[in-house]
Design a binder for these strands. Structure first.
Length: 860
RNA sequence: GCGAGAGUGGCGGAAUGGCAGACGCGCCGGACUUAGGAUCCGGUGGGCAACCGUGAGGGUUCAAAUCCCUCCUCUCGCACCA
């Protein structure tokens, strides 16, 4: 009667597979439930983070299936990307081979976990059958003006030989893959997607998501989109030709603008310097700032520095001639790359003005006084107030002043209200081989020409000799690169950049609905039937990029009539990280547990190893547990159960070997209890109408537990408390006398109890439940059974416990009939001897009766 | 600095205004046993007790881990965004 998961799990995985129980037909015949976990990058083997996220998703999928839903629960592979190339460089293998081998291995690992996927829908994004469609999307976007080409300064890693997103640059200005390589800036022609056109909708769409998405993710997205309201104002150049436009959120302070600051990268900076004969010193400054690494450049502590460019412009309302500086704190990518400087009301400008002795003019006075003077100020005043030194606008509240001045500028045609976003258009070009080719042909005569739709897909040539050299092998693949221009027929060259891999992950959830369609990317009919995703589960690390890009794609495809609704993911669960204690040797750094002896010393040097705080599992910190080893030792059911039991899904999970033992022990307890009673259970008759007291007590426990477990999973997503309720029920059954299992009076109730446990536990630990279900003589598979309904009548207690407080302190507990009236309970409480000890001879000031719960008596 | 979340036994965590510490781990004791690091049963916040206990202090309430105010600590996100 030993619980041996190794003998159980493979058998049931095969049976599920053979019966196709998790296959989801296209046609929706029951309430649909689309359950999706973020698909994995095939890095080689799954890690504990995968175990956790896929276990959570599977619990919900299995639960919803038993609740009568038709569940779509797919999986696939986010298969393009840099690590494949890096691995190829390191091991001399081809990225495609490496990727497909990893997929094969990880697929087996997921199957060993018993995750209930519809494997028929599986795909990898690196196959042309998938990526051909995103090439088509790109052509549509070109036509719709949503995709465009622009010269841009981008982060470049010499080691990767490619462009990096800002997020791929470490804080210290090094590459996120190569910690030692500094990232430099390069100017390149790049493809962009106009995501900013959807900025407002991406923000307002949060209304629809509120409640279904965690608030912190929405907050992160709000920051990311970074909406701010203000005005654009044109400052004429003092020379008389043209003007410089700035963006400001404080048009009310325009009269106080005493100089202008520009990003050092701004092309006008060197023009002004040239005209003023200041080229040398300005160039020196610009080069120095450009060479500074990101950490320094963007830290708030960095001293404000700048240099006079030699140029002047005119404050459009005061007519004053103001100098134009290049300043290290102005960002070229945001707004117009130039800002009007109002030192009295902006701290950065204030520090700058002090340093370079530029004039400070107060134009907003705090309420109740004219206290502020330029000379006496120690810092800028950024608060609200009344406008001064602002000509016709004097005396206005500055908030009104914002509107008035903006209106004034609009009338004169030299300014306009403007909403600015921090969100930038999405640069999608990567100088990489292992990605989806961008379907464009460059022609010396016609420029960048889209590949005609009929010529799609542009297949990534996988038969290239993949060399260990740096750079993009595509550029050297002459046969592939040289093609005639689709427009003029002359010699053309294929675009050798590939898409950012977020392109693939921006629509994969739609493709799962129609994964084998070879005539179109999606079938709008099926989309209507299956979208949106009812539950999406994934890590917080994708809060901004992936989730915003996916929302953007969905909105674009909606506008083209392909995707229904405004938002692709109705509910989002962002699971916490899997953490484990770290071990650190003072000499050798992070240690694996096996590198430390029993006495807590480093096996290499004998030094005492420090047990550090629990941190996210990572190979670099050597605090990882291998899922395969875990499954081999304890079985998938234990791994799953522990993942769900150790903490609620959205919180971090502290991995604990002993906790895993506990989960395993519990499953063993369930197994032994039910296997030992197998015969008695098989022989038990059906539940009869009349029941003895003992049977009623058993059924009460069953239905109470059922009610709690159902609510915990369905309404609260508190899987850990659902498990603990099942544990309590199992503990209860262990105390039931042997004779009761044999007795015809109680065995039907016990059989119901056992069946209910197996049904409730099956989404958590599906294999052992199937095995026991069969052992007690039931037909069919437990995963296909209906979730039982809790019988309220059965769950109700005849007697209830009421606690009695006197002056707020617990003094007694009384049992009362469940039907007892408030009056009766009050009388019982007052008559209780333990209560009377505290109330006798005192005056009762107040008495509160909470039905079925408590009596609170206040005496003096 | 701004924003969000969190702080409860030796540990993971329960309790969302009504018995603080469910359940699990660990620990202690017992049973079975040649043996037990298997299994089963029992105990386990502190204090001899009155009582005291949910980061600290105040408040609301018959009643506060839970609501309000002030503060501390930690985690995450954003951070010169004009």
């Amino acid at each position: 009667m030993k619980y041996q998961p190794q003998e159980i799990e493979g058998k049931w995985q095969e049976r599920w597979d053979a019966a196709g129980v998790f296959r989801c037909p296209d046609e929706v015949v029951a309430p649909k439930f689309y359950c999706l976990e973020m698909f994995p990058y095939p890095s080689g083997r799954i890690h504990m983070g995968h175990v956790r996220v896929y276990t959570i998703g599977d619990l919900l999928a299995r639960f919803k299936r038993m609740r009568g839903c038709q569940v779509l629960h797919p999986i696939g592979w986010d298969a393009f990307g840099l690590p494949a190339e890096n691995a190829a460089h390191r091991h001399g293998t081809h990225p495609a081979k490496w990727t497909w081998e990893n997929i094969a291995f990880m697929r087996e690992q997921l199957k060993e976990m018993g995750i209930s996927y519809d494997w028929d829908r599986e795909f990898a994004t690196c196959s042309p059958e998938y990526y051909r469609w995103e090439q088509l999307f790109f052509l549509w976007m070109l036509r719709d003006g949503l995709a465009y080409r622009k010269r841009a300064t981008l982060n470049w890693c010499e080691e990767c030989q490619t462009v990096l997103a800002n997020e791929q640059v470490n804080r210290d200005g090094t590459c996120f893959i190569h910690d030692q390589t500094p990232v430099t800036q390069r100017e390149l022609d790049q493809w962009f997607l106009g995501i900013t056109k959807y900025a407002e909708e991406l923000l307002s769409g949060h209304e629809e998501l509120r409640g279904g998405w965690p608030e912190n993710i929405l907050e992160m997205q709000r920051n990311w989109i970074g909406r701010s309201e203000g005005a654009e104002i044109d400052f004429p150049l003092a020379g008389g030709d043209g003007s410089i436009t700035v963006f400001t959120t404080r048009p009310d302070t325009l009269f106080g603008a005493t100089f202008m600051s520009m990003a050092p990268e701004h092309p006008l900076v060197m023009r002004f310097a040239g005209e003023a004969g200041r080229e040398k010193e300005v160039r020196a400054f610009v080069d120095r700032v450009a060479g500074q690494d990101r950490l320094i450049r963007t830290s708030e502590e960095l001293e404000k520095e700048g240099i006079f460019t030699g140029g002047y412009c005119v404050n459009p309302v005061t007519g004053g001639k103001i100098p134009i500086y290049a300043a290290n704190f102005v960002l070229y990518e945001y707004g117009t790359g130039a800002v009007m400087a109002v030192p009295a009301h902006d701290q950065r400008d204030f520090e700058f003005a002090k340093k370079y002795e530029l004039p400070i003019v107060v134009v907003v006075q705090p309420e109740g006084g004219d206290g502020l003077t330029a000379d006496a100020m120690a810092c800028a005043y950024e608060g609200q107030g009344r406008m001064v030194n602002s000509g016709p606008f004097d005396g206005l509240q500055n908030e009104d002043g914002k509107r008035e001045i903006t209106a004034h500028l609009e009338r004169k045609g030299i300014g306009r209200a403007k909403v600015q976003y921090r969100l930038r258009d999405w640069g999608i070009s990567r100088q990489r081989y292992w990605g989806c080719p961008i379907p464009v042909i460059h022609c010396p005569k016609c420029g960048a020409v889209p590949v005609p739709e009929k010529d799609l897909p542009v297949v990534l040539p996988e038969d290239l000799p993949y060399t260990r050299e740096k750079g993009n092998p595509l550029a050297a693949a002459d046969d592939w690169v040289r093609v005639p221009c689709p427009s003029c027929g002359g010699p053309g060259r294929r675009e050798t950049d590939t898409f950012d891999t977020f392109f693939e992950s921006s629509w994969y959830f739609l493709r799962y609905i129609d994964p084998r369609n070879d005539r179109a990317p999606l079938d709008p009919e099926k989309m209507r039937a299956w979208m949106p995703v009812d539950q999406y589960v994934g890590g917080v690390e994708h809060a901004c990029m992936h989730l915003i890009y996916a929302r953007f794609f969905h909105k674009y495809l909606r506008d083209r009539g392909l995707a229904p609704g405004n938002e692709p993911f109705r509910r989002l669960l962002s699971q916490g990280m899997v953490c484990m204690a770290t071990l650190e040797c003072p000499k050798h750094g992070w240690r694996y547990p096996e590198e430390v002896d029993e006495g807590g010393n480093c096996r290499q040097c004998g030094e005492k190893v420090l047990v550090g705080r629990s941190m996210k599992m990572s190979k670099s910190k050597r605090n990882v547990v291998e899922p395969s080893a875990l499954v081999e030792r304890y079985g998938a059911d234990t791994a799953r159960l522990f993942s769900l039991f150790a903490s609620p899904p959205e919180k971090d999970l502290d991995w604990s070997e002993q906790g895993v033992e506990g989960a395993f022990r519990f499953l063993g307890r369930v197994y032994r209890l039910i296997a030992q009673k197998g015969k008695a259970l098989r022989d038990a008759g059906p539940i009869a109408g009349e029941q003895v007291e003992a049977a009623r007590r058993i059924r009460q426990v069953t239905h109470r537990t059922l009610k709690k477990v159902t609510g915990d999973i369905e309404d609260r997503y508190h899987f850990n408390t659902a498990i603990s309720a099942i544990m309590e029920m199992v503990n209860f059954l262990y105390l039931v006398e042997d004779t009761a299992w044999e007795s015809p009076e109680t065995s039907p109730a016990l059989r119901e109890a056992v069946e209910t446990i197996l049904l409730m536990l099956s989404p958590f630990a599906p294999h052992v439940c199937e095995e026991l279900w069969e052992r007690i003589g039931n037909d069919g598979m437990v995963c296909g059974k209906e979730w039982p309904a809790a019988d309220e009548e059965m769950a109700r207690a005849e007697e209830i416990l009421v606690v009695v407080q006197v002056n707020g302190k617990l003094r007694s507990r009384i049992t009362a009939d469940a039907e007892a009236t408030e009056e009766e309970i009050r009388a019982m409480a007052l008559a209780d001897p333990r209560v009377r000890e505290y109330t006798d001879g005192k005056v009762i000031r107040k008495l509160v009766v909470v039905p079925r719960k408590l009596v609170s008596i206040v005496v003096s």
